[in-house]
């Protein structure tokens, strides 16, 4: 739904980290994604290509790792019948990146 602003944040964060680490080029960016995230990976890659033109990240690939350790389902799997509040599962996290 809001792939564009999220992709902008990713670019900001990786460029900031690239600068700190004296990077020439960003090759792959590894993202941890909550299982419930509804962001479209294909669109994010397209937006990323567009937004990163002319930067160190221009040709970088986004690699998505789906996190299954969270609560997982919309209904908490631990307490079937019991009432509970869903706390996680939508998060997005930049784990690390391969750079030259």
């Amino acid at each position: 739904m809001h792939e564009l602003p999220v992709t902008e944040s990713i670019l900001d964060i990786v460029l900031k980290n690239a600068k700190k680490n004296d990077v020439k080029k960003i090759v792959t960016i590894y993202l941890n994604v909550g299982e419930l995230s509804d962001l479209e990976e294909e669109w994010m890659q397209k937006y990323f290509q567009y937004l990163s033109k002319g930067t160190l990240a221009e040709t970088a690939q986004l690699s998505f790792i789906v996190d299954k350790n969270d609560l997982g389902k919309i209904q908490c799997p631990k307490c079937n019948e019991e009432k509970c509040t869903l706390k996680s599962g939508k998060e997005y996290y930049i784990k690390n990146m391969e750079v030259i």
Partner: peptide, 10 residues
């Protein structure tokens, strides 16, 4: 190619 830890939440 080297690996840089970022560990930042979007």
């Amino acid at each position: 190619i080297r690996l840089i830890e970022v560990k930042e939440e979007i």
